[in-house]
Write a protein that binds this DNA or RNA. Structure first.
Lengths: 142, 142
DNA sequence: ATGCTAGAGTTGTAAATTGCAACTCAAAGA
DNA sequence: TCTTTGAGTTGCAATTTACAACTCTAGCAT
């Protein structure tokens, strides 16, 4: 198999990435934890999303999400909207403050990331982004 | 800028990856935590590596590594060898048992990952692996 | 309608992962 | 020889997470 070495390299790279995440996250979006950033981003990108959907997306326990969403809610960044007919639970949405914080953090992320990838060309960045997205799509529902 | 949307997609993908890491790791290499797997792999791949080098590589604190290496050592997977002249600290190396566990885990990883990427072609996998590696190389020393 | 089932969320509890600060120890260098 | 500095350890606390047991209620079948 030609792909075996590549699989190994890939997994090693992904695990390294994962273990560095806290450090990178702290540097990249000051003021917003990695947890907060990922949740706000996902809520913003997925209208009508509920806590259970977030749990499935990130492969986390309901209880973990419950507590983290509680924090964001009482911080005024997130809001629980009414239910949707045909589905239980409540729908999540950003507050105006949440949207503002997320936008600022996203801008900071783009700037920092652009700096770190200054010597990459546009095609490589786009390819990398698409591959990561594709990888994440396949995962989570094995 | 054309790259702005790609940067955003990339970072979102990377953070999602990071937050799923525990779950993925548990599934991928049963019996070895994500921490243990990453450390053993790195020690195996980098002869003469020391604790401080690992800390730098993973952007973690010395104390974190100290404790994690202690666990692996007392589990009989890792061994502290003598010092190297001109450099302080001691050199880490896998024991026979550590090598055996790591090899088994790596095989499991390849199998599982191959299953998850069954519909990818070899070129995409290789490209993904190289991009991740390149990204990790750039990071950590800003 | 009535009642059962199952999905959504919360809370109690415990474990794992990590960082910071203060420390010891010994090697490098002046 | 003596000072500096790098490597590692330990005390402490915060964060992140899972599992289990619970409540509540919407949806379904009878």
């Amino acid at each position: 198999m030609v792909r075996e070495p590549a699989l190994e390299e890939l997994y090693q790279g992904l695990t390294t990435l994962a273990r560095r995440a806290r450090d990178v996250g702290d540097n990249l979006h000051p003021g917003l934890t990695l947890v907060a950033y990922t949740l706000l981003t996902q809520v913003d990108a997925t209208p009508g999303i509920r806590a259970a959907d977030l749990a499935a997306h990130f492969c986390l326990d309901k209880s973990t999400l419950s507590r983290q969403l509680e924090q964001l809610t009482s911080a005024g960044l997130l809001r629980r909207e009414g239910e949707r007919p045909g589905r239980r639970g409540y729908v999540l949405a950003l507050t105006a403050a949440g949207k503002k914080h997320l936008d600022a953090a996203a801008q900071a992320v783009r700037d920092r990331l652009a700096g770190r990838l200054a010597d990459w060309d546009d095609r490589d960045i786009a390819a990398f982004a698409h591959l990561v997205t594709r990888f994440n799509h396949g995962a989570g529902h094995p």
